[in-house]
């Protein structure tokens, strides 16, 4: 297994998703429509709080909503059933016979997917946001550079978490309960519905103990320059720790799962 192999897999991930252009367009429209509504809600909430809410003014609140809508495509905080289906149908045997580590192979493909969806799904909500509400973005380059690092890490963490939960399919047949729980936890705790900084204390503590804020809240904080310098580096360090930790947990669980797996037929 080499880096070149993984790079090829990343390209195939890009190609697979770039084939369906109209689907990407439909996704961008959806994200933009929800962005309009969410920006109105965050601005309304900031206005009701007297113009400032946990460091967000009205435009910052709207920017948060637009950035969140731009990033959910690439980061994919939702659920994907691909691996679960492969385990259930036994197709996973094909993955096991390949001379590539399955987790890294799927991660590479997911990075390709994220790289493709970044512009077609991310740019339209941000453009509409800039026109409708205006965006509060920093004027210097550094937050964006750090932001790109943070987004890549967010994609990796999101993949690693979905991978880890999907592996439960080795032991349980009906995954709908698990996927719903995951969807609830990730959607609420990543900051998709409202910024994590607005959470009441008990929910903020709960969120901080999970990798979910690292999927959406952290990249947005870094890009918006809410945290700069050492504080931003610390956030990225937390992301690195979550990425490595969850990937490693996925590797261990994969070994346990495949030891138990029996695939019938030839």
């Amino acid at each position: 297994m080499s880096v070149a192999t993984l790079a090829v897999l990343t390209q195939t991930g890009w190609r697979r998703w770039s084939t369906y252009r109209s689907a990407a367009l439909a996704g961008a429209v959806t994200n933009t429509v929800f962005g309009l509504i969410k920006a109105a809600i965050t601005m309304g909430a900031v206005g009701a709080a007297g113009g400032q809410l946990a460091g967000y003014g009205p435009i910052e609140g709207a920017t948060y909503a637009w950035l969140a809508q731009a990033l959910i495509g690439p980061v994919n905080v939702f659920w994907s059933n691909d691996l679960v289906e492969r385990i259930r149908t036994g197709d996973i045997a094909v993955d096991l016979s390949r001379p590539v580590d399955p987790q890294l192979a799927y991660l590479s493909a997911d990075l390709g997917r994220a790289a493709f969806t970044f512009l077609p799904r991310g740019a339209p909500p941000l453009l509409v946001g800039a026109l409708v509400t205006g965006l509060a973005l920093p004027a210097n380059l550094l937050p964006y550079l750090l932001g790109i690092v943070s987004i890549v890490l967010a994609v990796i963490i999101s993949f690693a978490c979905r991978w880890l939960v999907s592996l439960a399919a080795f032991w349980i047949i009906e995954m709908r309960g698990a996927s719903t729980l995951y969807l609830m936890a990730s959607n609420i705790l990543c900051g998709l519905i409202v910024p994590v900084h607005w959470f009441p204390d008990w929910m903020a503590t709960l969120a901080a103990a999970t990798p979910f804020p690292s999927m959406l809240q952290t990249p947005i904080d870094v890009i918006m320059g809410r945290d700069t310098g050492l504080a931003a580096l610390w956030l990225i360090g937390v992301q690195v720790a979550w990425a490595l930790g969850v990937l490693l947990a996925g590797q261990l669980l994969w070994r346990l799962g495949t030891r138990k797996l029996v695939v019938q037929g030839g």
Partner: peptide, 9 residues
């Protein structure tokens, strides 16, 4: 969550 920090929307 929204109403944990404001009282009227």
């Amino acid at each position: 969550v929204i109403f944990s920090s404001i009282s009227v929307l």
